[in-house]
């Protein structure tokens, strides 16, 4: 009898349903966007939800220029909100896709940023490594230059796929929808981007990376 009583007392409280219902009381992104067709002010809620993520993605690609492109991303998204199709794509990847298209207009800035980062990482540190730094952290630091050099050398459409996955957190299907290419193409571009990135990471020294001819290309 005691056991039965304890068991019953462990049942979920009756108001658990209400607690679970709270999050869904907030409108989804798609609902907000749909509502903004008639009530444009609602669109600002999407900015509040996603500005940080979009800026973080842009910032990793174009550095300080992200401030301007963040603003442009949401202006473009607002103007094109009637074109949004929720059955194709969630709002966040849709915004990341718009941001990606804007980055294309600043491709030279992006490549220059990677090259500068690669070269900066190749310079000797002013101070020796902090003994308190973990091995993983030091490993990551050692890879910053090679990774930046690798990004500078990728072809634009290969880099898009790689960074939409890595920094945009998009699935292959979302990348395909954003770029308007089949999923298979996403996979093959990702394969090529990873292969080339791995080739650079495997280079004997960072100094070699600085001569990577691809980093001077403009396409």
């Amino acid at each position: 009898m005691i056991a039965l009583s304890l068991h019953r007392s462990a049942d979920p409280p009756s108001d658990a349903v209400h607690l679970r219902a709270l999050p869904s009381a907030l409108p989804t992104d798609a609902e907000v966007l749909a509502a903004s067709q008639d009530d444009p002010e609602r669109f600002a809620m999407l900015f509040d939800r996603h500005a940080a993520a979009v800026h973080r993605y842009l910032g990793r690609r174009v550095g300080e220029l992200a401030d301007d492109l963040l603003s442009e991303t949401f202006l473009v998204a607002f103007r094109r909100r009637a074109d949004y199709r929720p059955e194709h794509l969630d709002v966040r990847p849709w915004l990341i896709g718009i941001a990606t298209n804007l980055v294309h207009g600043h491709a030279r800035t992006e490549r220059r940023r990677y090259r500068l980062l690669a070269r900066a990482a190749g310079r000797p540190e002013e101070h020796g490594p902090d003994p308190a730094d973990s091995g993983d952290r030091l490993d990551a630091q050692a890879l910053r230059g090679p990774l930046a050099a690798a990004l500078a050398g990728l072809k634009a459409h290969d880099r898009d796929v790689l960074l939409l996955v890595a920094w945009g957190d998009l699935s292959y299907e979302e990348v395909a929808a954003v770029l308007g290419v089949p999923v298979g193409t996403v996979r093959s571009r990702l394969h090529r981007a990873r292969r080339r990135t791995r080739a650079v990471l495997d280079a004997p020294t960072l100094s070699d990376l600085l001569s990577d001819p691809a980093s001077e290309e403009t396409r």
Binding site: H55, A140, Q141, L147, A148, L151, A166, L201
Partner: peptide, 17 residues
């Protein structure tokens, strides 16, 4: 893999002021 490396050791974004 390269994706994880990019997340952990790729160029950082400047903070959104």
């Amino acid at each position: 893999n390269e994706t994880t490396l990019l997340r952990d050791a790729g160029p950082e974004a400047p903070p959104l002021s």
